[in-house]
Amino acid sequence: MNIKNKTTMMISHAILLLLMLLTLFPIIYTFTSSFKTNMELMTEPGRLLPVDPTVENYELIWNSDGFNIGRLLWNSTYYTLINVFISVMISSMAGYVFARGEFFGKKFVFACFTALMFVKTGNITVYPQFDILNALNLNKGLWALMIIHLFGIPVVNIYLVRGFVLSLPKALDEAAQIDGCSFIGTFFKIIMPLLKPILATIAILSFNLYWNDYILPTVFTTTKPEQQTLMVGLMALKSTSGAASNWNLMMAGSVIALLPLLVAYAFGNKYFVSGLAAGAVKG
């Protein structure tokens, strides 16, 4: 390797290292700030390391009556896992149908679904969703949100699964049909086991989305505080006592909320990158 190539590689590594530090800085700052007092956070917000580290923030959260961490973690866990399961099943089945199925208007329907990727409605749909569920008397609690997600269309995930299925040889389907498998049987017995990389990717992305969901859980649990998720409870920590915001408690709570995401990524890490790349092979 000549000097020019070595210099280029060193510059590339330096840029990547800088980008990594910039990406990790918010996490590092949150972690170190969780050991600071609220006074230190408000008077010296630019300091990275605490002057006098303390675990009192975690003790206050753990023993807080208003912030029932056990209940909040349980609500976030079952809300997230059920929605991840819904997203994975809908994405895998819809992606398989669009890749292997033959029906009238398939290309038109898929084009419409694809167009939805470029339409962002933000939170403008919150009120219509709440109004519809209110008419059905299903407007309270996390289960109402799960019903909404059950009838949702995870367009990007469907697109990824479709691309992955198209990369698989059709000989697998033909061999399964010769053995007597139906269209649905071929999916569950042959195709779905091969979708592990892309489904793991979808599961991680969905886990991150639903675990950090704040607006909808806040709206739908207003009358049922016992069903609040961890993200909703974190915002309540800011004003648990007095007029001053308790940023120290929020930092400690944020660290606790971040741990499940890191664990989920650690378990699915080996599938994550390969799944994203494989899902974009064909389209």
Rank of each mutant, 00 (worst) to 15 (best):
K4Q: 14
K4A: 15
T8Y: 12
M10A: 15
L16G: 06
L16F: 12
L22R: 00
T23M: 13
T23Y: 11
F25C: 08
I28N: 08
S34V: 03
F35K: 09
T37S: 15
N38M: 06
M42V: 13
E44H: 14
G46F: 15
L49Y: 12
P50M: 10
P53M: 11
V55C: 12
N57M: 03
L60V: 11
L60R: 15
W62A: 14
N63V: 01
L72V: 06
L73T: 11
T80Q: 05
F85V: 15
F85I: 15
S87F: 05
I90P: 00
G95N: 07
F103D: 07
V109M: 14
F110A: 08
G122D: 07
N123A: 14
T125P: 01
V126W: 02
Y127V: 15
L133K: 04
L133E: 09
I153Q: 08
P154G: 05
N157V: 01
L160C: 07
V161E: 01
P169G: 09
E174L: 10
A175D: 11
A175C: 08
A175I: 08
Q177N: 09
I178C: 03
C181D: 13
I184P: 00
I191T: 15
F207W: 06
F207I: 03
Y214S: 04
P217M: 08
T218D: 07
T221P: 02
T221I: 04
K224I: 13
Q227W: 05
M231I: 04
M235D: 11
A236M: 12
K238V: 12
K238I: 13
S245E: 13
M251W: 04
G253T: 00
P260I: 02
N269R: 15
S274E: 14
S274T: 13
A277R: 13
A277P: 02
G279Q: 08
V281N: 11
K282C: 05
